Each structure stands twice: as structure tokens, then as C-alpha cells.
Simulated scan of single mutants.
Amino acid sequence: MRNIFWQTLKKNILLLVVLIAAIIASIAVSVTPPLILQYIVDSLVSGSFSAYPLLTAGILYFALNAGSGLVDALKETLITVFGQKITHGLRSAMCQRLDELPAAYFVSHEAGAVTSLFVNDVDTLENLFDSGVVSMIADAFTIFSILAVVFHLSPGLGILLCLCLPLLFLLTRYFQKRMLQAQRDNRIAVSRTNELIPETVHNIRTIHTCQQEHYLRQRYGRTIRASFDAMERSNFCDSIYSPIIITSCTVIICLMMALSVSSPSLQEIFGMTVGSVVALIAYVRRIFSPLESIGMEIQNIQSAVAGIGRLKDFFAEPIQERKEPEVPDAAA
């Protein structure tokens, strides 16, 4: 599998270069606007400003905010295309491998299991690239870039963020695991309900004859209740997560403001102007989005591990050695 990945990478080196450029542009677009806003606010507060530089800065600020959506869309599109290139190369290699397997493999493996390898497991591997590794690298660099700018503007706030981010990340992972488990329970309950429908239709006469309508009603009620409870748990986690993150963001900003005016030594550490305060508030709000995305991307990587193991087992299957047909002797 590693050889397949590197071969696909060499064939699409231009796509990789464009993808890296798009990731760098996305990070730059997310980091630059607050700095421009800082320049505008500081210029207005100091009173030493000129209309034309401020107008240019304002146009640039709005242009970067408007272009951020286009850059992000380009980045996500390239990541998806890159993942599809990987899966295309993998499926082609699997088809070639399938042609070389002996008949004993098809006797010992059901057709549905082989189809699942080509469809479900390879799709999981695609998620590993487009919603996993590549996206996680991009989000990690975004967080590091924001932290670097924050440390430059206010070392005190940078220290606060470094202390709070691990706790918020653990909180994010906790809620994501709870929501994922609730969604799995819901799918299990829905699948059980779907299994009951054809079973009920097939045995409808027996059910009426034995007067088991109440028993079937209870079975349907249990599965529907299990689905409802699972969705309630997921909705509850989703409803309280965003307020917790917003509250944490507000607490960090308030703590920054309080510490920056509490003593002269802390004022030197936090050392902020009016413009830098505006920029830092924007950075604090921007840093939570990639943090939440990294949690989901870790979950996608974990889900892809099992699929990768099954694909490795498939490529480890012994192939059938083909004998060259014997060419009859012309002299004979």
C-alpha cells in the first residue's frame, strides 16, 4: 500500500504543489485581517492617519475576508481531489491484485465481503486523507500561526491560550465521543426497526393467528424509544457544546483585560494597544474553529485504521503463480 501511495503522489506532484499553496494561502488569509484591523484602529485612535492609506487598508481588509471563503473552498476541493486520486490508484491496484488471486480465495471469502473492501474500506481510506491527515495538518498550522501572532502581540495572552487550549481540546474530544456513540446507537436502533418491518410483513398471518400484535407493538416501541433516546443525547451534547466554547472564549478575553490592567508588571507582559486588543479578540475567536475540526479529524483517522488493516490483509494474500504456456517445438 505504501508503494501505491508514493506512486500516486509522484503522478500528481503538480496537484500536491497547488494543494500546499492553497493551504498556505488559507492560513495567510485567516491570520492577516486582524492585523489590518489593528492598524486601522491604532491609526484612528492616535489621530495621525491619512485617508488614502486607511481606505486602502479597509479595502484590503474586506477583500481578504471576502476571499477567505474562496480560498477555503479551493483548499477543500483540492483536498477532496487528492483523496480521490489516492483511492483511484488503490482501487486500480486492488483490481489487478484480484485478477492474480487463486480460486481458493473466492471460495473462502464471500462476494459481499470482497465488495465491502472495494467500497466501504477504500472510502474510509479516502476520508483518512481528505477529512483526516491533510485537513488536520492544515488546521494544526493554522493554530500555530495564530498562536505565533498572538505571542508577538501579547505574550501574556499567548500563555493563557497555551494553558486553556489543551483543556478545551479534551472537552471537545469528550463531547465528540459522546455524540458519536449516540449516533451509533441511533443507527443500531434504526437498523433493528428496519429488520422488524420485513419480518412482520412475512409473518403477518402467524402474528394475527397467535394474537401477538401487542408483543410486536412493544418491540417496535423499544427500538423507536432507543432511537429517540440516542438522538436526545446527541442533541443535548450539541446544544451545550457551543455555549461552553463561547463562554470560554469570553472568559479568556475578560481575564486578558483584567490581568493587563492589574499591575505594571503584567501590563508589560500583556502590553496591548487598542488596536491589538481588537485583533487579539478576533484571534481568540478564530482559534476555536480549527481546534474543533482537529477533534473530528482525529476521529476520522481512528475510524480509518480498521479499514487500512483489512486492506493490508487483502494485499498480503498469496497470489497465484501463472505458468507461461508451453510453445510447441517447431521441429516436432
Rank of each mutant, 00 (worst) to 15 (best):
Thr115Trp: 13
Leu117Ile: 10
Leu117Trp: 07
Phe118Asp: 03
Val119His: 10
Asn120Ser: 15
Asp121Lys: 10
Asp121Glu: 05
Val122Asn: 07
Asp123Arg: 15
Glu126Ser: 13
Glu126Ile: 05
Glu126Thr: 07
Glu126Arg: 13
Asn127Met: 14
Asn127Ser: 15
Asn127Gly: 15
Asn127Tyr: 08
Phe129Glu: 07
Phe129Ser: 06
Asp130Gln: 11
Asp130Gly: 08
Gly132Ala: 07
Val133Ala: 12
Val134Thr: 05
Ser135Gly: 09
Ser135Gln: 09
Phe141Asn: 02
Thr142Asn: 06
Ile143Tyr: 03
Phe144Pro: 13
Phe144Ile: 09
Ile146Tyr: 02
Ile146Lys: 05
Ile146Ala: 07
Ala148Trp: 08
Ala148Ile: 13
Ala148Tyr: 15
Val149Gly: 01
Val149Ile: 14
Val149Tyr: 02
His152Trp: 15
His152Thr: 07
Leu153Cys: 04
Pro155Glu: 00
Gly156Asn: 05
Gly156Glu: 01
Leu157Ala: 02
Gly158Lys: 01
Leu161Tyr: 08
Leu161Ile: 07
Cys162Thr: 15
Cys164Tyr: 10
Leu165Cys: 06
Leu165Thr: 09
Leu165Asp: 04
Pro166Thr: 14
Pro166Ile: 11
Leu167Cys: 06
Phe169Lys: 02
Phe169Ile: 00
Phe169Ala: 06
Leu170Trp: 13
Leu171Ala: 04
Thr172Pro: 00
